[in-house]
């Protein structure tokens, strides 16, 4: 898969890229939502940090959903209780809390891409 990571924390960004890369994926990294939008990369799944300066993860996700072909998204967050932070986790978008295991992450990525595929097939009918 071709994956993109959008996280303002460089350490997290690099470590995640390294992990996904070691699992055989093609990985693009971006320091902010704006940076991602500026690039024109087609990806199978987007790993989005929730809390970022500028455009936040959920905001970017909303923008992508409004497009004709929405990109599957996995949200990651360092917050313990995301509800308290006014971030309503979208039902159809997996949210992974840092620090996370690779299994958890990969499960979330698969969930995101498969539900996106299912949605696409329904549209095709």
């Amino acid at each position: 898969m071709t994956l993109a990571i959008v996280d303002d924390d460089e350490g997290v960004r690099q470590a995640l890229a390294r992990l996904l890369h070691s699992l055989g994926h093609n990985v693009h990294v971006f320091g902010s939502a704006e940076e991602f939008e500026a690039g024109t990369v087609a990806v199978d799944c987007l790993i989005l940090d929730v809390r970022m300066p500028g455009l936040s993860g959920p905001e970017l996700r909303e923008r992508l959903r409004s497009r004709s072909t929405p990109t599957p998204v996995v949200l990651v967050t360092g917050d313990t209780d995301p509800k308290a932070r006014d971030i309503q986790p979208p039902v159809d978008t997996p949210l992974v809390t840092k620090p996370f295991d690779e299994v958890t992450l990969m499960a979330a990525i698969h969930h995101a891409t498969s539900s996106a595929n299912a949605l696409r097939e329904r549209h095709a009918h």
Binding site: V12, A15, L16, L19, G78, D79, E102
Partner: peptide, 20 residues
Amino acid sequence: GALAHELSQPLAAVLSNAQA
């Protein structure tokens, strides 16, 4: 909350790096 976030970042990075 903010402090948890502050700690979760390096921990997330450590875990990812270790698994990689």
